[in-house]
Design a protein around this nucleic acid. Structure first.
Lengths: 104, 104
DNA sequence: GTCTCCCATAAGTATGCACTTATATATTCG
DNA sequence: CGAATATATAAGTGCATACTTATGGGAGAC
């Protein structure tokens, strides 16, 4: 199951934090490493898992590897969540209002 | 982190399937058990994890235990996803159109 | 060339986890 | 009461996983 890979990849707190950090901007591995209290191999391993789940993309430049979020990677998760949004009309309302504000 | 419990709870395929089954309607443990090729204790353990993550609620009636989805439990996940929806305008468009149809 | 630098991979370890069987705890039924 | 039913918990097991240190390998810097 493809959803399983996405859920599993995001289930680990530090790995999810790596993803969230990359959501801000593209970063190299060493830049990422600076923000976390784990070793460089640990970061590389997390990136490999995120990449395997389709959540991030890699770009090599010289001896550096830059990683960025792949927007398409979250689509399975978004789709799954959307199937269950039907259970909370109040939250759909909230979202509707948000989108109305965006239209103006 | 509360999100971590939700992600972890939904990361396991059979546990996520249990949740999805409960999304249809409230069910007793033995009813749930019938749908899965695992033992009754396994089901009870999955339900305990889902309950710990705030995703399901329990109701005792006699010697039976009925479980149902707790809509509030998915809010952390929905909020997390919504933070990253900003990355895909095309998906937001899709959702916008869906909501417009619901308005009519 | 050699020396750093940046990153990935290998290998090992310890903990977590999803399952099993066995047993405990209630509750209903006869 | 005792027997059957419904569920939870205990205990054990095998495998996944999140980390570590050590090493490999390629691309600038000198």
């Amino acid at each position: 199951m493809i959803e399983t890979n996405v859920f599993r990849a995001l289930a680990d707190p530090t790995r999810r934090a790596v993803f969230e950090r990359l959501a801000g901007r593209e970063m190299s591995v060493s830049e990422l490493k600076a923000g976390f209290p784990v070793s460089q191999p640990a970061i590389s391993q997390h990136l490999a898992v995120l990449r395997g789940a389709g959540l991030v993309l890699e770009r090599r430049e010289g001896r550096r590897a830059y990683y960025r979020v792949d927007p398409a990677g979250l689509v399975p998760l978004v789709d799954w969540v959307d199937r269950y949004r039907a259970f909370w009309p109040e939250r759909i309302e909230k979202l509707k209002n948000l989108l109305k504000e965006m239209d103006q």
